[in-house]
Structure formats: C-alpha cells, structure tokens
C-alpha cells in the first residue's frame, strides 16, 4: 500500500505534517532519550499549527514515530472525547490518515495528556505524554543553567528538602500530580502532570514511554521495564490517591482513578472512571454501577 493511498493529507504537507528532516532530528533525540532513561534531551522543537502548551511536544513525537501501519489513540484526562484529544486526533487523521481507535488494546501508539490508561500496556505499544514543564526541579530552581548542573551531579537534595518540608508543615507531601520520580536510580524525572495515582504504572511498564515538551524543547524517555520509583521517605512512604468505599457509578470499577461529577445545584456528586475506554469496556462486559440504567433494571 502506498503512502498516497492511505493518506488523506493535503499536498502541501508531508505524512504526519512534519518534514522528514525534522522527524529524523526528533527521532535522534528520542533515541538518545531511550539510551539515557529520564534524561531531558534538548531538541529543536518546531512551531506547530496548534498552540504551545496544547500538546505540541507530544504531537511532534507522535508525528516522528508514526508509520502508515500504526493505529493511534489520543486521550486527554483519560478520555478520547475531550476537546483537545478530538482536535489532536483530527490533526493526525487529516495529515497521516492512519487508523484511529478509542480502544487502548487496539492502539499501537497512544498520545496522552494527564493520564495513563488503566488497562495494562504491552511491549507492542508506545505511550506518548504531552509535557508542559519537563524540569522536575523548575519550581525549586527556575534557572536552566542551575538545574542542568544539578542533574549532571545527581544533586537532588533540594527536592528531598522540599518533600520533607511539606511533611513538616502539612503532615503530607503536598504534591498530588507531576509527582517526581527517580529513574533507574539516576535521574529525577517529571512524570508530566499525571496524578500520582498513575506513577506506579510507569514502573517497569512493558510499553515504550516517550515524553515530549514542545515549548520547553525537551524529549525524554522510559524504555520498557525501566525502574521508576516515586520519591519518598522510609517513614513516609509514597501513597497513591485512594477512594475508599467508592465505585464507578457507571461500571462499578474500584481501584481506578475517578472523575468527580457534580450532579445538581445542591452539590450532590458521583464518581466515574476517568479512563473512558476502560469504563465502556467494562460496561460492555456487563459490569454496571449504581447509576447505570441496566443496574437499576437488574435491581428491580
């Protein structure tokens, strides 16, 4: 099958938008990132036809690795149908013509913002994160010249002091998303603004995980089976978010990340899976939560 046949791209643009030279430059950065897990590789990010901060890094990584045989899934906040996920999916539908899916298991490439799918990924899949601020030390030290030195010397004391001060002041580590991780015992890495709930999924994941930050011009990577450990203390071990006694109102799932939905002006609430594909798959398999129509029928 030739490129022209499978692609609905406009003639003015190359397959998946970026020109091949640019893709090559980005692939080099990706390979370097894979060779040094957790290290932020500078790359000459291009201006993309969507705004900086709206996924230009992830889009460039996706565009660079996408081939005609790939199947792409795009999620934002865990869902395929959020506005920005729709916009990015349309971008690749128009410029690459590759097959699109909403099913996690069917995708060979998944671009995500803020979530990791609940379903376990496989070695045949690549997960691409959109990253706003790739530097985990940025809010402790705003200067790039300083933070690069700190990474070079593995000087992460400042980060531990910050976490310690959180505990001393609040009794908790007051970081709930973009929770810093240590990669292969060498680089402290920003997992992108995923909730810390998702951090354990990064550890020894079978899929290749790539991170693209367009505005900040950085790429980093976690090859399959990489050690990814959330920073903590012996007496204050890392903990993920928990919703005790809560099930998804639609599919009844427990131990997933929930969206809290406000239902009326009185502020009554319900919880549903943040991962929309996971939730729908469970419903299709006959799992129902208490707000699901089938559940109510079953009760009757």
């Amino acid at each position: 099958m030739s490129l022209a046949e499978i692609s609905t791209e406009q003639d003015a643009y190359n397959f998946a938008y970026l020109d091949e030279q640019t893709k090559r430059m980005i692939r080099r950065a990706i390979l370097k990132g894979i060779a040094i897990p957790g290290y932020q590789v500078p790359f000459a990010a291009r201006e993309m036809p969507m705004p900086y901060g709206w996924g230009t890094g992830g889009v460039q990584v996706t565009a660079s690795i996408l081939g005609p045989d790939d199947t792409l899934k795009v999620i934002d906040q865990g869902s395929d149908d959020t506005t920005n996920a729709v916009a990015i999916r349309n971008f690749f539908a128009v410029t690459s013509g590759v097959e699109m899916t909403m099913k996690t298991s069917e995708a060979s490439v998944i671009q995500t913002r803020h979530r990791i799918p609940e379903e376990e990924l496989t070695e045949d899949q690549t997960l691409i994160y959109q990253v706003p601020i790739p530097e985990p030390l940025r809010f402790l030290e705003p200067r790039e010249t300083e933070t690069r030195k700190m990474h070079a010397l593995s000087e992460y004391g400042l980060m531990h002091v910050k976490l310690y001060e959180d505990i001393a002041t609040h009794g908790h580590i007051a970081t709930t998303y973009a929770y810093p991780v240590m990669v292969e015992g060498r680089y402290v890495m920003d997992p992108s603004p995923t909730p810390k709930f998702d951090n354990p999924k990064m550890h020894k994941n079978r899929a290749l995980q790539l991170f693209g930050a367009g505005r900040e011009k950085r790429i980093y990577a976690l090859p399959p089976f990489t050690d990814v450990v959330s920073l903590d203390f012996e007496d204050h071990p890392f903990q993920i978010q928990e919703w005790p006694d809560t099930c998804c109102a639609m599919c009844g799932a427990k131990d997933v990340y929930f969206d809290e939905v406000i239902l009326d002006n009185e502020g009554s609430r319900m919880f549903v899976c943040s991962d929309s594909d996971y939730c729908e798959t469970r419903q299709a398999d006959g799992h129902y939560g208490e707000m699901h129509a089938e559940y109510k029928e079953r009760i009757q």
Partner: peptide
C-alpha cells in the same frame, strides 16, 4: 500565549488530585 491559554484545557484530573 500558548501556555497561558492552555489553562483553558480540561485539567480535571489534576484538579481532582
């Protein structure tokens, strides 16, 4: 402008956290 305006994108996963 991109980064300032990206605050318009959904952030409810982080907000939930």
């Amino acid at each position: 402008t991109g980064f300032v305006e990206h605050l318009k994108l959904p952030h409810y996963v982080d907000f939930q956290a």
